[in-house]
Design a protein around this nucleic acid. Structure first.
Lengths: 196, 196
DNA sequence: CGCTCAATTGACACCGTGTCAACTTTACAC
DNA sequence: GTGTAAAGTTGACACGGTGTCAATTGAGCG
């Protein structure tokens, strides 16, 4: 099969892009840098990805696959009570955030690219769906505080679990990953769970 | 005085930059766009500001001056009790955020410019100082929850009041400005104030 | 009048993205 | 083996945005 080789190169490029983004925290990840890392010519990258934005989108998907984030989040839905589900979701997503930090930075650095922003917003919308499911489970147990509607509580949880907040607390404030998860969990419970 | 004319043009440019950033929510604010808005040639902008980054930094300062944010925040320090001071600070800063949203977006869109990021980090550090002062006032009244150290509580308040959270709740979730302020205040009190 | 400084025009270098054409390599099919 | 098609290479180029430079214009002022 010819396509085998093509797929192999494609994955090589994705790995290279991931590595470059991961290593150069806030440096410029040019197409030429990624190509060099992948051991091919800059132009060859365009044989597999039409634009830089598409490459980043594909890389984000690839990272998701490698870390099996879908499965991680699905497991958090198995919790029986709403409270357990809330903490399982926060723990699952909160511990995934450091893995996608580099991808998030790359996307947020190109806010004027419509394709990239659409892909990013899709991903974030999925996270909000997860938040909504957790909040609804909490509401079903009548454990959701009366201060907020389900929508508002979802928005607040979504906000707490944003990558920007993770970056602020861990990168800028120097919190450990464990502190981040435990304190965000504490805040969420404090704000969203009834008689807590 | 010759410098009068120069200062006048300088301010014209700053106003133009402000307007362009404000109007084009996530469009490209090129030097040529700003120059056109100011009614001068693109090259003339460089007679007043060496780089685009410096222009943005100066524009941010100009916006601060116009809105007299320093004075607004200073007033929040006049509150007598720690609790009052916390709510005064949240209200003052929270209601200033919509004014600087466009500037924030501009800075966050150029994360690889060292000068711009340094300027932005300075501004954010000042906000954190304000948070720290409010938390210390709370601690002085023995109204700070025992769950966090002063530093941790400051970090949490800083996180809650970040521009990214404001953008998320108002722009993406559609919250009104009033809802934003009141709910962030409620969350902060819930999380940070003892027996609340 | 002559000086100075702001501003203008037009040109250019640099850099990164994306495209194109021509050529080479690889691998498989017959 | 030889032919063919796809993958990859090199070199060149257009485009857009930033920043620089030189030559020129124009207004204000002693």
């Amino acid at each position: 099969m010819m396509s085998t080789k093509k797929n192999y190169t494609r994955e090589t490029i994705l790995k290279a892009a991931w590595k470059i983004l991961d290593e150069s925290p806030r440096a410029s990840s040019r197409m030429s840098d990624i190509a060099k890392e992948a051991g091919i010519s800059r132009q060859a990258v365009y044989l597999h990805f039409p634009t830089r934005a598409e490459l980043l989108i594909a890389t984000a998907r690839y990272v998701d696959e490698v870390y099996e984030i879908d499965e991680r989040l699905r497991k958090s839905r198995n919790a029986t009570t709403g409270k357990e589900r809330l903490s399982a979701y926060i723990e699952a997503w909160g511990n995934y955030l450091p893995c996608v930090d580099c991808m998030a930075s790359a996307f947020l650095a190109m806010p004027d690219d419509d394709d990239a922003m659409a892909a990013w917003n899709d991903r974030m919308a999925e996270v909000r769906d997860g938040c909504l499911a957790a909040i609804e489970a909490l509401a079903a147990d009548d454990d959701l505080t009366a201060s907020y509607t389900v929508e508002q509580a979802t928005d607040i949880l979504w906000m707490l679990l944003s990558i920007q907040n993770w970056q602020l607390l861990t990168v800028k404030c120097g919190w450990s990953q464990a502190d981040y998860v435990s304190h965000i969990l504490e805040i969420a419970q404090n704000v969203l769970v009834k008689n807590c």
